[in-house]
């Protein structure tokens, strides 16, 4: 998918998540699609394209998260950069391994947020909230990563049938 289309699809997913959480009233079971999308961009996009798409998505994600601005994004950026460092050694298929990896990356994301908040707002109740919710949150991210990754891969193949099928394709 071209970067603009990727951005649009991700935007629809993020807004859709917000709307569904409103419809069902289950905020603590948030899928955190922002993390899933970052993982997809880190694994399936060339560095510059992925970084620019993510940079364009960060303000939207921040507005939809409505937390203290910048902290959630910082976690996503760290997840993206860590993933880019490991991309060569991660298998392509969305399966159990990717699920476990997504869980660890969600925990890393929470860890980065905790660390940044500890430095800037050490007495904040947000720290407790993150510590409490990060465990279930990481499991939900892991479980939702497989269908999200497969869907985005399929969307990639719809627009570019060669995507993900050619071993000589430049990652």
């Amino acid at each position: 998918m071209p970067a603009v289309v990727t951005w649009l699809v991700c935007f629809v997913f993020l807004v859709g998540e917000s709307v569904l959480l409103t419809t069902f009233g289950i905020e603590s079971f948030s899928l955190q699609l922002g993390i899933g999308i970052t993982i997809f961009l880190g694994l399936r996009r060339e560095f510059v394209s992925g970084a620019l798409t993510l940079a364009a998505l960060l303000p939207v994600i921040e507005w939809l998260v409505s937390g203290p601005m910048g902290f959630y994004s910082l976690g996503l950026v760290v997840v993206f950069l860590v993933l880019r460092g490991l991309v060569e050694s991660i298998q392509r298929r969305w399966g159990m391994a990717q699920m476990v990896m997504a869980m660890f990356l969600a925990l890393l994301h929470s860890g980065v947020m905790l660390f940044a908040l500890l430095l800037t707002n050490p007495s904040s109740m947000i720290l407790q909230s993150i510590l409490w919710n990060m465990w279930l949150g990481s499991v939900i991210v892991g479980v939702s990563m497989i269908p999200l990754g497969r869907f985005l891969d399929r969307a990639d193949r719809m627009l570019n049938p060669r995507s993900g099928r050619n071993v000589l394709e430049i990652m």
Partner: peptide, 18 residues
């Protein structure tokens, strides 16, 4: 990479924090 790293700090700097 620079844009990506700067973005969160830019968001932090232009908001009311916690």
């Amino acid at each position: 990479a620079l844009l990506l790293i700067v973005m969160p700090f830019l968001l932090m700097a232009t908001s009311a924090g916690a």
